[in-house]
Each structure stands twice: as C-alpha cells, then as structure tokens.
C-alpha cells in the first residue's frame, strides 16, 4: 500500500494546511500527563508527595494511611484506583454498547474491562475527595495478540475461589477487629493476585468499609461509587448508597 502525500505537505501555505496544522498543534495540559500517570498507577515520581508517594510506588495502602499527610487521602484513593487498573481488579457487570455499524466494514471488536477512574484535571481541587469513578465500564479494543517470536509464554495463575474467599475473609476479620489498615493491606495483596477476580464486588465492599472506618470517607465514597457503577441493583448497592449519602457527596 503506497501512502499518498499528506495534505499538509502538498498544500503548505493554503487553508487546508493551516487547519490541519492547527489540529496538530493542539495538545493536552501538562497536568493531564501527571494525572494520567497517577491514574495508570505509575505516578509516584510525578506526584512526588514524600512518604505518600513512596507508599504509592510500593503499593501499600497501609503505609499511606500511616503517612497522614494532607494529600494522603486523595492519593490513597487514586493509588487504589491505579492499582485496580494495573491489577485488573474490578470486574465489569455492565454492557458495553459499541455500535457495530460505525463502519460499513467490520468494526473493531470491543470487550468489557474495568471501570476507569479518571482524574478531573481542571475542575476538581487537589485536596477534596477524588472524583467519582466513571459510571460505565469503558469499552476496550481487543489487544493485538500477535506475539513476537521470542516472547516468553507464562501461564497466568488465577486465584481459586478458595484463595479469594480466604483473602476476603481475612480482611473482614481484620476489619472486625478494628484493624482497618491491615484489612486494606490484605485487600491490596488480594488485588495483586493475577487473573480475574470473581469476588471483586465483595472485596470492594470490604475495602469501602475499611476506608470508611479508617476515616478516609472520600476514598470510601469513590469505592462506593465504583460499586454502584458496576452493579446499581446488586447486593451491595444499598450499603454503597449509604456510604455515598453519609458524606458531602460531590457529583
């Protein structure tokens, strides 16, 4: 396939080129880069929030809880959401409606994935609660699957139901005994287990309660919103609504 010359090259000084040049010149704010790095779970260096940032990089909620800085609340929720993104912790339960008819030719496939929690880069002040998770799971293009010849093949080890149950029960016990930090650490470990998590809603529920009990109401609300987004009529919806309604809800 021979590519034709681009309009910008053939119409250097014309209106076409001016319009295209303007399109190419546009870019996002620098803040979006930092926020996206954080949202993707790799923002410790960008955030640079001392102990909180270190904890973020180390993937320990409990360390963040101990850090106690003014930014730890927001960072905690963001960090958790970032880990959720990387670890694939949130199971989607909503339909992804992508119009098949966008093209006359076959449209790209989509599959469901975790709900994303992006960070509003302009309207949200830095200190208050992090923004709500998105109300729908994002549609996702199928990952290109052609492996390079040298790519190592590793068998993923998805946790068994028993393993998941053990982890969540442990977190529940820790929470019941008043040790919210330990419960969160246990949930972090659970989130890092590879493969799909079948008990993710239960894990979210415990996390929400642990965050609420540890005084991180804003982060608890983010989790509650995520729970509701995934399953507005699910068994944990009432509890999530309770948490959402208990604070200064910001929508």
């Amino acid at each position: 396939m021979t590519d034709p010359e681009r309009l910008l090259d053939t119409d250097g000084g014309g209106l076409s080129a001016a319009l295209l040049r303007a399109g190419r010149a546009e870019g996002p704010s620098d803040k979006l880069l930092a926020d996206t790095l954080v949202a993707a779970g790799i923002g410790a260096a960008v955030v640079g929030a001392g102990a909180a940032a270190t904890a973020l990089g180390a993937g320990s909620s409990s360390a963040l809880l101990k850090a106690g800085s003014t930014t730890s609340l927001t960072t905690l929720a963001i960090k958790w959401l970032g880990i959720g993104a990387v670890g694939g912790v949130v199971t989607v339960s909503a339909a992804v409606g992508v119009e098949k008819s966008m093209h006359s030719a076959p449209a790209p496939q989509v599959t469901a994935a975790a709900p994303a929690a992006s960070i509003d880069t302009r309207s949200r002040p830095p200190q208050p609660a992090p923004g709500p998770a998105h109300s729908e799971p994002e549609p996702v293009a199928s990952a290109p699957i052609t492996p390079p010849p040298s790519a190592p093949a590793v068998k993923p080890t998805a946790p068994s139901i028993a393993e998941e149950t053990r982890a969540i029960d442990q977190a529940r016990r820790e929470l019941a005994s008043g040790n919210a930090s330990a419960a969160l650490a246990t949930l972090d470990a659970y989130d890092r287990l590879p493969g799909p998590h079948r008990l993710q809603p239960e894990a979210l529920l415990v996390r929400m309660d642990a965050l609420a009990k540890s005084g991180n109401a804003a982060a608890a609300r983010v989790v509650a919103k995520s729970l509701l987004d995934q399953s507005p009529n699910g068994p944990h919806a009432a509890r999530a609504r309770q948490v959402l309604g208990s604070g200064d809800q910001k929508e």
Binding site: P28, L32, A40, A85, A117, S118, P144
Partner: peptide, 22 residues
C-alpha cells in the same frame, strides 16, 4: 481529558496482553 485517562487505565490493566509492536 477524561477519555484519555480511561484509555491509559485500560492500557495499564492490559499491558501484558499488548504486543509492543502494536
């Protein structure tokens, strides 16, 4: 802004599945 973040959150989750060449 929001959508771009979503894109990279998805990429983060699925990084191990994404062929670097694509």
């Amino acid at each position: 802004d929001d959508a771009a973040q979503q894109v990279f959150i998805v990429a983060a989750r699925r990084l191990a599945e994404i062929d670097p060449a694509r």
